[in-house]
Design a protein around this nucleic acid. Structure first.
Lengths: 149, 149
DNA sequence: TCGATTGGTACGTGGCACAAACTAAATTAG
DNA sequence: CTAATTTAGTTTGTGCCACGTACCAATCGA
């Protein structure tokens, strides 16, 4: 391997810096749509499901008391709605409003564009390989942050 | 959409989820040492430099007014110190105290352990490849797709 | 020298996250 | 069938984080 390149970072620095880079993009996209990154995550979950508050807290690894405010602020803006669960009077289910769904789709499209742009410096095979390796990393231990759709 | 054997995530989802996974680890490590993730980043910068407030803000992509509080809270805990710059009466330089340096080293060691553990499901060559690809992604400058806000 | 620029802080606002205390619904024990 | 317990969620209070505006002091430029 001829050395036309700067030396690779170690795996630790490489992953850490990459994570900041990606989070930076996500944060900017969220901000452009008046959202925070945690709300973007919340909405990503709600795109496929209608979970209870506690389920959401588990997905996001937040305390249940943090969910109240998070959902409340989104609700106040008409992006999500609470509804009582039919078979358990204690649980309230959270779902996207049509307005919220629109916003999610916009953000998702933008995320796709920006991450693709970021990855555009790689060749096609490199991108595939990176996707494969990253999938292994996130898919591996019982630590399920955001289960595959 | 690759239609191969194990359903790899697309590059977008793969990178997004990986970034959340890595940030989650970093956040936990920071929390275990009584820090936030932004402080961990701050300290990582201070390990090598003694920048001015505005420089720090640029590294972290924060407003300068955000720096005051960030540095102040760290200073209050004896982890960093402010000092006036010798040749410009306006500038205050920020540096780690010995105590702060110790803390940084602890955190760095822990980050190394945890990220290595995360990456331990990969083979050696896979890790190298991942480090190489990630290095390409983060090393790419001038890829700023975001107009100034 | 005077006006503009630069580096930094102060203050007010709002979002985010937690812990502890609390309510109400559901479940289990006796 | 009650009584005790568990579970889902909210409320309240605290603290951090980030921003924008306004402001001050030092420096620079004409």
């Amino acid at each position: 391997m001829p050395a036309h390149r700067p030396p690779d970072l170690g795996i630790v620095d490489a992953l850490a810096q990459l994570s900041f880079r990606v989070q930076g993009e996500l944060g900017k996209i969220a901000a452009e749509h008046g959202l925070s990154i945690i709300q973007l995550r919340l909405f990503g979950i709600l795109r496929d499901r209608t979970p209870a508050m506690l389920e959401l807290a588990r997905y996001l690894e937040l305390d249940k008391s943090s969910m109240t405010g998070l959902v409340h602020r989104a609700e106040r803006r008409g992006l999500v709605q609470r509804s009582p669960a039919p078979h358990d009077g204690r649980v309230t289910q959270v779902s996207l409003t049509p307005q919220g769904l629109d916003l999610v789709r916009e953000c998702e499209a933008e995320v796709g564009r920006r991450i693709h742009a970021l990855a555009s410096v790689l060749t096609g095979p490199q991108r595939s390989q990176l996707a494969r390796l990253a999938t292994i990393l996130v898919g591996n231990p019982g630590q399920d942050l955001t289960p595959p759709r």
